[in-house]
Amino acid sequence: MKLSTYNFLTSVAIKGVKVGFPLKLTINKKEVVESEFNPTFVERILPKLDWSAVYGAAQVAELTEDIPAVQPENIVENELLLQKLHHLLFEIDVLEGQLECPETGRVFPISDGIPNMLLNEDEV
């Protein structure tokens, strides 16, 4: 699972959950996968991201030095920051870990890089 996907995942499908975002991420095993840097796509995806979740992901991935805590102005002109964002969001692959719902504490395991968002009968 890429950290960009983590930024989009919620547990809103669980009964009783209103927002379910951001999920608490725990990384037990991760991998760095090289991919081509596309500044245009990073620019386009930024409005969809929640910066606090991006920074939270950076903290869990131990990359807090690269990402500022508050979203800076004119990110588009900061090529270096765009590259670091690309590395954080698209090149870090979480293989083992878990996602926890902030409202119910429900844990979704991540195995082989695949988050398991299946729910039980009483949660639907």
Binding site: T5, F8, T10, V12, A13, K48, G113, P115, N116, M117
Partner: peptide, 23 residues
């Protein structure tokens, strides 16, 4: 995963709803 697809894949049930942020 074995084929190393570029997109991310998630294990989930369609009928339980899409677990994604709005928009």
């Amino acid at each position: 995963v074995e084929r190393e697809v570029a997109g991310d894949v998630i294990l989930g049930d369609m009928g339980e709803g899409m677990p994604f942020k709005p928009g």
